[in-house]
Amino acid sequence: MKKITTRLKFYLKIWWMMSKNAFLIWLSQGKLLAFFLLGKIVRFVIFIGFLIYLLKTTNGLVGYTPNQVIFFFLTFNLVDIVSQFLFRYVYSFRQLVVSGDFDLVLTKPFSPLFRSLMGGADLIDLITIPPLIGLLYYYSTLLNPSASSVLLYLFLLVCSFIISAALHIITLSLGIITLEVDHTIMIFRDFLSLGRLPVGIYKQPLQVLITYLVPIGIMITFPVRGFIGSLPVYLVLISVIFAAGLLFGSLKFWQYALKRYSSASS
């Protein structure tokens, strides 16, 4: 147990060092930071404003009340932004592989996966997380949840982040094999953005596809349904099994991809 704690502390220290460096890079480019932050805020405000205005007219969507739909949208944003905050380094992974600089990562005395996945947290996302949580809290109070619903929501969110980590690991692994990362990650985000609204709006077979195959439903719709008390127990189990299975599979795929790293260009 002591060994695990020491190891965790070690990785936490590395993560903090790498994140601090990433933050310093952002802070040294104040204008760039301002453009991106403003862009993200404007996009969020326009979309949520549009949604509130639309739902006021339609009085709900596929059986969900306006406040529930907004809660879906905010949960999507939370999963999306926290994932980007933690796994932003994936976006620059291609350059490491193409240039052969990934060799240097492999020689370091800690997990290359950890370095590739969490090599630098994103300051912009960190800034936007607290107000987003504030909004989530506000809308959650409008839905009058029970304590158990809140706990279930938080638990299912943890599953969402595990799935997100697994999908980012798969992207990294594909990056080693195909040298293509940028579009793969953006396609993942495009799929994720389908979860801005309840998956019930999509017709079959797309609905099943984005619930289980590209697990947007599990990542976003399930936690919200848990929160509003409409998620059967078996779907909670599916969520847990899926998250664990995908993480296991992604780690195996990473090992497979590592063996195919050619170190070209180095």
Partner: peptide, 19 residues
């Protein structure tokens, strides 16, 4: 992949209005 992304972006808007 760029074209695929364009199609993906249509899905959300299409199904939102369709619903």
């Amino acid at each position: 992949l760029w074209r695929f992304r364009n199609v993906m972006q249509i899905f959300l808007v299409f199904f939102l209005w369709s619903a």
